[in-house]
Design a protein around this nucleic acid. Structure first.
Lengths: 341, 341
DNA sequence: GGGCTTTACGCAAACGCTTGCGCGGATAAC
DNA sequence: GTTATCCGCGCAAGCGTTTGCGTAAAGCCC
């Protein structure tokens, strides 16, 4: 017969043979099944210990059709926001005896699809996903749904209603941010927003508009520009904003990276930060405290906690505590953190 | 019989039944085995497509004793250095059809051991590990060795000779760093080093000493202090260095986090950065460019590339291109990046 | 001591897939 | 026409584990 890898690991079969009992007895003994005598249990456990027996999980997974593994798919593992989130996910997964399978899409829709496919093949029990910024088509997630693999989206959530999601209430955070600028006397406030299809972009825009309305100020659509979050895109957006007739004195940027790029651009244009122009951003990175020209304030999104929340939601889905078709969108509160005084 | 989860997924058995052929034929047809006729292959593939058949990987893994999964164990997923490394690891794993299982130790030896245990049970094909800074005992890795699961250590490498490892040549980087400071006229250079048992600490110390020797300067052991990398530890270390009779005008810190903490401490002591005291660090974070008081220079360690290298080494170990007992320590070059002029 | 329940264990199927081998039939070689 | 070769496919074992059910032996009650 074919020679399998056979890493020489002992199996319950071996234990059974040595003890002259059946494999089922061994299996049950190791599980402390009530129908097994104390003596037998003891003997089995002793031998298992001695042989350094270790249950072959792949066999169990296969047999049970469950892997105690959750897949996480993120655009960019090295981005601070996401790596904090991963940390939160891993921590709560770990304390619930789940393991984490990882994949990054690099915002590439094709790769995103492949990774989802691979995770499905790996038979993950569920997924936590933050979609790429270019993803327009959601067939791959539909596949998961049909395979009854629950998915919890977080942060970058597709604009659908029948999904489970955890995200931050950016609207309220944005309102706080614009409030802050208005109180500092700014009247022409630009916004470098993200791609239109992202919910996060819509929320930011809505917050921006609502804040103005609250102060009975007229909303000028010219002041919001959608960018692609690259440095070049940010430059273009800044160039546009600075070219407007109305003089923009403050800009709300999509995240800290955009803010830093925007700051660079402003410096190139010989503008003085926090004087000629003030930036407010969303804290996707822990650098704010150390940055030379940090945004005057930023909206904290608590990535670690979002990761935890997403994982907890997935786990309750997996445990059946939460019905698969009971779609919930957990909104976490964001909070404006003011850096300069 | 017991009702298994049975997500309704089609199996090769079903395909076989529908086509009135044997499962083995189906299996082989799907693998394009030469011994299967073209007509049969076509029929099988067509039906598979139609039924939306998808191979049950857990069954394959179990059957083959291989999971095409590698485990990565790191101290802290959210640290920039490690998250870049993860990104590099995931990318090369992905392009070699491997998947990545993730765990973080939080520098806790017990948790480290549990994660290794769990990965072993998951039957990962191999591991990539950066050990916790408190880890003194390596039994868990010995277990992996006995289970013939290859491990590649990287960055934080245990001080053993019979291991596979990828790390950065910190010695040369440190020499460059100290050279830099000496050329700027500094003569009393402190070093806040990491925990003694880390190879990385030893290399830094060695580089420091060699650089002095190169310039025919006497090495004063008082100037190197081992810290625990916490903010408090850094404060203590700074306090110590500043209390010395010889006036320290420059400090080489273990990494950017330590540097930033040290900067904070120096500021509290009313010292002017880059005038009263100059810092040089190791770039474990991408923030240097944006920081208010960045270290004057830092030694770049290329985490992404280290991750790639570690993964490639592991893969060649797994493919048998590299003998398990042929222990190699790949040293990558570090390079001093100068921030101020 | 007969009938009953309980205790403690074994039997064997099942999970989905791969693969060595065997075998019938067609084709080629001589 | 006989033999060797090859093509195309089926049989069945095996990977390690779990678990429904069957069944002896032991214990209990009356």
């Amino acid at each position: 017969m074919r020679k399998v890898v056979s890493s020489g690991q002992p199996t319950i079969k071996e234990i059974a043979k040595r003890l002259n009992i059946s494999v089922s007895t061994v299996s049950r003994a190791l599980h402390d099944h009530h129908s097994i005598g104390l003596r037998t249990k003891a003997r089995v456990k002793a031998l298992a210990e001695e042989l350094n027996y270790e249950r072959n999980q792949t066999a169990v997974y296969f047999q049970q059709g469950k892997t105690f593994t959750i897949g996480i798919l993120l655009p960019e593992l090295s981005e601070a926001f996401f790596s904090s989130a991963i940390s939160g996910i891993e921590d709560t997964a770990y304390s619930n005896n789940y393991t984490v399978l990882l994949g990054q899409s690099h915002d590439d829709e094709a790769r995103e699809k492949q990774i989802i496919q691979s995770m499905k093949q790996h038979r993950v029990d569920g997924c936590i996903v933050s979609i790429g910024k270019n993803t327009r088509n959601y067939d791959h997630f539909e596949m998961l749904r049909q395979a009854r693999i629950p998915v919890v989206f977080f942060d970058r959530v597709p604009d659908l209603h029948d999904i489970h999601a955890v995200s931050c209430n950016l609207e309220s955070g944005t309102i706080q941010a614009v409030d802050f600028l208005l109180k500092k006397g700014h009247r022409v406030i630009g916004m470098i927003n993200g791609p239109e299809q992202l919910v996060a972009s819509k929320e930011r825009a809505t917050g921006y508009i609502k804040a103005l309305r609250k102060h009975r100020l007229k909303y000028d659509p010219e002041l919001i520009v959608n960018a692609d979050l690259t440095a070049a895109g940010t430059d273009t957006a800044m160039e546009y904003l600075l070219s407007l007739k109305r003089k923009v004195t403050a800009v709300v940027t999509f995240n800290d990276y955009v803010a830093m790029d925007a700051v660079q651009y402003a410096l190139k244009r010989k503008l003085e930060i926090n004087k000629d122009i003030t930036f407010v951003s969303y804290a996707n990175t822990p650098v704010s405290g150390y940055t030379a020209f940090p945004p005057a304030a930023s909206v904290e999104q608590f990535p670690y906690e979002q990761g935890q929340a997403a994982t907890n939601m997935l786990l309750s889905l997996l445990n059946g505590e939460h019905a698969l078709n009971d779609y919930t969108n957990t909104i976490m509160e964001s909070r404006l953190v003011i850096h300069d005084r």
